[in-house]
């Protein structure tokens, strides 16, 4: 049952903890600036040691601290009631900008936005907009499309699998794009899809992956948080059983999480997007509309695992690179599912 805990994740967690402890111990006394310090908080509903979605956000928070000299804070919250509390707690202690890293925060963000007009809240993947609440939409479909191309090139069985967490539009969108990318390489490819209903349920993710592998899939992509390790582990175990199986990373560069099985990762450079968002906020450009981050800003990408590059046909590396350029140029349309209110077709 034990999934391999990535050493990087552990190191990150320890580092993070120490950094925050040190920051708290210093109490901000080491930044005697005249102008008021920028205060930025991050809310996640999962652990920042996931080497993925939450870890990327935490990295962003650390970069904001370094680049802007901001006072930063993070809280992991689990329930809607806690979301409200965290917003209130941060707002009343003078925080300016809160990154709420998941669509689950959107209702609480709107409520807090009404109550604290001075506050700005950025909801990653959110669907609701107000004057001081802005969704930050990652066009991960673009990276996922490229991942689909790579997967189609690697499969021998002609079957690829997708294991998702909660079935929400942003997650479904990545799978739709993955499928489209795969079909652009092999129109006859068979694609399996399952949502476990939980981003962090390791056991469910592993079970789902094993099921797909036993149905013939030999490349599996995920859209999970902490449970993604289970996907890699299941693929690794199939490998140990004598099959040639691959996994695809998602949300952050997971290539070195399982360098023996991950062929490449569809990445969101969340930290880059966060830093950019702070810049926009300082320029007064955050609020009232969604913020989009895509391959165009290099926030979204697909990164081959350098350790396995010799196993990938060179022509597919080339095709992925070309497709990326076309997406940036707007000449290749990646299918996606819109969900932000005010967008085309969304109430």
């Amino acid at each position: 049952m034990a999934h391999p805990f990535p050493t990087r994740g552990a190191r990150t967690a320890a580092l993070v903890a120490l950094t925050v402890a040190a920051a708290t111990a210093c109490g901000g006394g080491d930044a005697p600036e005249a102008e008021p310090t920028l205060r930025v908080a991050l809310l996640t509903s999962g652990p920042v040691s996931d080497a993925g979605w939450y870890a990327g956000a935490y990295e962003g928070l650390m970069r904001i601290e370094q680049q802007f000299g901001a006072q930063v804070s993070h809280q992991q919250t689990a329930t809607p009631a806690e979301f409200d509390e965290a917003f209130i707690a941060y707002a009343t202690s003078g925080y300016d900008l809160i990154f709420a890293h998941g669509n689950e925060y959107q209702d609480a963000a709107i409520r807090a936005g009404e109550r604290f007009p001075e506050l700005t809240i950025v909801v990653s993947g959110g669907g609701r907009v107000s004057g001081n609440v802005a969704p930050l939409i990652f066009r991960l479909e673009e990276g996922s499309y490229l991942a689909g191309m790579a997967a189609a090139a690697m499969t021998e069985s002609g079957i690829v699998g997708m294991v998702g967490g909660v079935e929400i539009p942003p997650a479904r969108g990545t799978f739709v794009a993955f499928e489209a990318g795969a079909r652009s390489v092999d129109p006859d490819i068979e694609v399996l899809e399952v949502f476990t209903g939980d981003w962090n349920d390791v056991a469910a993710a592993k079970e789902a992956t094993v099921a797909q592998l036993s149905r013939g899939a030999d490349v599996v992509i995920h859209n999970l948080d902490a449970a993604s390790f289970a996907v890699f582990q299941a693929v690794r175990e199939a490998r140990a059983a004598g099959r040639t199986t691959w996994a695809v990373g998602m949300n952050s560069d997971q290539n070195d999480v399982a360098p023996d099985v991950i062929i490449g990762s569809a990445v969101i450079r969340i930290a880059d997007a966060f830093v950019e968002t702070v810049r926009m906020w300082q320029a007064g450009e955050v609020g009232g509309a969604a913020i989009y981050a895509s391959t165009r800003q290099d926030v979204i990408d697909f990164v081959f695992n350098p350790e396995l590059l010799d196993r990938v046909p060179p022509e597919i590396v080339q095709r992925v690179s070309e497709a990326r350029d076309m997406i940036r140029a707007g000449t290749l349309d990646v299918p996606r599912i819109e969900f932000v209110e005010g967008e085309a077709g969304v109430r």
Partner: peptide, 16 residues
């Protein structure tokens, strides 16, 4: 439970 949230926010104690 309320204080536990503050421990995360103000003292950087991990949620676990």
């Amino acid at each position: 439970q309320a204080g536990a949230g503050a421990m995360q926010r103000d003292a950087g104690i991990p949620a676990a």
